[in-house]
Design a protein around this nucleic acid. Structure first.
Lengths: 264, 264
DNA sequence: CTATCTTTGTGCACGCGTTCACAAAGGCAT
DNA sequence: ATGCCTTTGTGAACGCGTGCACAAAGATAG
């Protein structure tokens, strides 16, 4: 999933573009870029919708928020639309980003081509581990957390990516915000609290899997459902009697396991 | 963002639990687990909502879909709720998953602790590169794509993670589905087409950044907006005259760049 | 210039999700 | 036992997002 709209319920829809539409624009852009590379001059809403995996009516309505591009009886000019969407998304300018937390995930992100391919430039890799400092990852030398504020202000960075363990995320977040970051992409499994005006989007791998598991369980016919034992499950919550809990948990429970890198 | 509900518009809400609620259950579960580890016996909807970053009324309504757990005047029993949500999400059983595409991202996923911490077990790592075969990643030997079908059927795997380049994703997806996979978590920047009954959720790093860029541009006062030059931008789409395009693109455009690992 | 055909742009209705606000329920003190 | 106080569970209203279906617009052919 991804967040980013739970706060600022009024400021959203800045000029009238619904949040749901904004979320689909990158999808259209990708499909259009593919067409552009094949030198396709125009597309109909039907074709483009199929390529993007959405309803054609939805696509047309989405585009209508951007303006009246497109020609009736013909379709949309691919090159022109690529430019318009890019401009609307702010991709015609260069966006320096910093990645904080160069573990497995951070390194993968640094190497991820999808960043550079859309105007995003990795301005710096930052980690708290001193032994990592200076080491090159994806061709960029990792810098120590001490430099965080300097890097951000000197490079005019406004977008930060957090790929640290959950425990460090909020602290890193606070420093990023204090240093001037106003948009954060958070990979750490924590709820970040940020001041007004700062956007946070969350990518949570574990949550996605859990949602899949839910549907998977449903598809399995729900047979493995009646696993209730002789407790007081039916309706009554475990009141007084059951609530007696002698400080358990710190290393117990039915699914006894310890997170390796990031707790979830 | 993540998909997974664009198809099967009717089958959703299997027993009455809204999709939006399902997506939040893992969030509650995480907050509850944290409370459980601190041996907190009960929480009010207000406290738990704050910890999960949601509205308390929403949380109560979400829980009401699961049943009437909770005690008026007191709150919810933490341990009991942990169990109920885990069961609802299907986390009381073991879910073997396969990860296909052991590049930077795939390796990061294999090392990601959030998987193992919730009943998900990495059953196999699969890659098309023969030179990777046998090499251990996160303590598991990478296997060649040829083994894909065997691995899935022998281990009864129903959840697959695709972390391949975009070009290989659909092909891998088809093989996974044919082998019996019914839930897919897709990290490749492509729209996957799957038969009825197969769930796909998408995690797209590049899209998240683009959405952030959009809001960032808006926050910047929209000053860097009037960048139009003397073309025919205003309203008129580039009709006949402008549409004459001598097979351009294959290495041009205003943002000339080539994806490094994954095109987006 | 007129007719026909294609495709856009959108008015409208419907359904899901969110939020408010409050009655019902239960604990706890007296 | 009675009354007060806290917190749940939910009815109802509202707003956003989606999809249908069609009129308007323009291209194209004759």
């Amino acid at each position: 999933m991804a967040t980013g709209r739970n706060h600022r319920p009024a400021t959203s829809r800045s000029r009238g573009i619904p949040e749901a539409t904004v979320a689909r624009l990158p999808l259209y852009l990708r499909a259009l870029t593919a067409l552009s590379e094949r030198s396709v001059p125009t597309v109909s809403s039907e074709e483009l919708a199929a390529a993007a995996g959405v309803n054609s009516a939805k696509l047309r309505k989405d585009f209508s928020y951007l303006g009246s591009y497109g020609t009736r009886g013909v379709g949309y000019d691919v090159e022109y639309l690529v430019y318009q969407i890019s401009r609307e998304l702010g991709l015609t300018q260069d966006w320096p980003v910093v990645i904080v937390g160069i573990g497995n995930l951070g390194a993968a992100l640094a190497n991820y081509g999808g960043f550079a391919s859309r105007g995003f430039r990795v301005a710096a890799l930052i980690d708290a581990d001193p032994s990592l400092a200076g080491k090159p990852v994806a061709g960029i030398a990792v810098q120590h957390t001490d430099e965080l504020e300097t890097i951000i202000s000197e490079n005019g960075v406004s977008i930060g990516v957090i790929a640290t363990p959950a425990g460090a995320a909020q602290q890193v977040c606070d420093r990023l915000v204090a240093a001037g970051i106003t948009s954060i992409l958070n990979f750490a499994p924590t709820v970040l609290s940020v001041p007004e005006g700062v956007d946070v989007r969350k990518v949570d791998l574990s949550i996605e899997l859990q949602i899949l598991a839910f549907h998977e369980q449903r598809k399995a016919g729900e047979e493995p459902h009646g696993e209730d034992e002789g407790a007081a499950h039916p309706v009554a919550p475990p009141a007084a009697t059951v609530t007696k809990r002698p400080a358990k948990r710190p290393e117990s429970g039915p699914d006894g396991d310890v997170p390796a890198v990031m707790p979830a």
